[in-house]
Amino acid sequence: MKMQKLSEDDIRAGLDKLSRETVVYAPMEQEGRLDFRKMEKGGEVELGARKTIMSAKKLFLPQAEELFSFKAGKHSVEMIDPPKDEEPLVLFACRPCEMRALEIMDKVFNWDYADFQWNERRARATIIVFACLEPLTETCFCNSLGIDSSRSDGADAIIYTTAEGFFARAHSEKGKKALKVFVGKDEEAPEFTTRDFPEKFNTDLQEKMMENFESPTWKEIAPACIGCGICTFVCPTCHCFDIQDEGGRRVRLWDYCTGADFTLMLAHQPRPTQYRRYRQKVMHKYSYYPTRFGEILCTGCGRCIDQCPQNIDFREVLKKCNRLAPAETGGEE
């Protein structure tokens, strides 16, 4: 197949031009931390095989987002829409797992209610994916979940990194338009395939988990979990949010099911212990979501493994879940 062949210089020059025309978000380093940042003049975009700390989700579901604000008059309440941001946006060099996560979340954001903020941002964005022919880090496990990281059909364009340079191909009109800023000739590209990981996970856990909801084994799945928000915040698919009023603004905030204040009600916490919260996290990803939408809520990006302060390996968790067995006696205590 013919693809646009680009050198590193071509890409950098193109990005420079692109960032002057529209808003570009790309992996950039700051004091050693790689994250998706807005490209400013002279910013050095990371083109190599490195993983960002946070996923690209934050561009579509911001960590804190104003829904509206309100002003109370004497006999009236005035509702004010938040300022709208309508600029087109290019997301450059996210990975196939992150693209996949957006497609998975499209389902829940258009399920019983079409979330216009989400949809509007998705429509506004042109997404250029960097394919992974090799795992980025040793914590990546997309391939073990059966995801082919050499393609990303939902993306507007895809770029392959080879020893001789980069090969780019557009999937959509938006992608074509974005790729136009990059010079470079069309050339015959080689066949791209990912390295197969030896380990494959059984992700068909819905029934097993439901049947063993009360299994005491849950207590042993991740006893070291401290209930912080790291794994859910860095995850490209976690999308639970909380709504709070902050001095006349109603904001939507990322929330985390592993935390002790998630589902906390005035007098009652239905998940009073940490293993129950962790069970919720696992089951939402591998049971509730696939039951409703036919796809697991995990793309194997491995960020939760990278960042967990207690070194909990989600792959190990999955393996343990495969061994879930019914309670020998009674249910939960």
Partner: peptide, 8 residues
Amino acid sequence: MADAETTA
């Protein structure tokens, strides 16, 4: 993203 970074 403006919201997250405002009010500072």
